[in-house]
Amino acid sequence: MTHLSKQLHNEFPHDQATLRKLKSENPHFERLNRAHSEIDARIYHAEIGVEPLSQVLLEDLKKQRLALLDEISALVRNSRQPVD
């Protein structure tokens, strides 16, 4: 299975300015971002065989990543810069 990165810059390609602003101004967003990156890395390592995980744990990590992405998405949506 090929790992598809869920890094935020790939998930929100049109919101780069909003991501930068949130990372610099919102500590809660930064914690979510850090947790998302750590879980994404664990999933990647499991999928390429570096860190063997049970299928149950892998699925649990994917669910955690999705929940974080949902919360991050709401923050991005609510923080978007208006387009002139």
Rank of each mutant, 00 (worst) to 15 (best):
S73G: 10
P52G: 09
E30V: 04
L57M: 14
I72H: 05
L4E: 07
R31K: 04
A41V: 15
L8K: 03
N26E: 04
V50M: 15
K23E: 11
V50K: 13
S79M: 05
P13H: 01
L58A: 10
L68W: 01
L57K: 12
Q64A: 08
K62C: 02
Q55T: 10
Q16Y: 00
H3N: 06
A41Q: 13
D15I: 02
K62R: 10
V56K: 06
E59V: 11
N78H: 06
F29S: 07
N33A: 15
M1S: 13
P13A: 03
P82I: 08
A35K: 12
H9N: 12
S73C: 06
K63P: 09
L69R: 10
V76M: 03
L66C: 14
H14K: 11
S73V: 07
L19A: 00
N26Y: 02
T2I: 13
Q55W: 06
I39F: 05
H45G: 14
V83I: 13
K62A: 04
L69W: 01
H3V: 00
L66K: 14
F29Q: 04
H3P: 02
S79C: 05
K21L: 03
E38G: 12
H3T: 05
G49W: 12
A17E: 05
E38M: 06
S5A: 06
K21F: 07
K63A: 13
E71A: 08
Q7C: 15
H36A: 07
S5H: 04
E51M: 12
P13M: 02
E11F: 05
Q81A: 09
A35Y: 11
S79I: 01
H45P: 15
N26G: 03
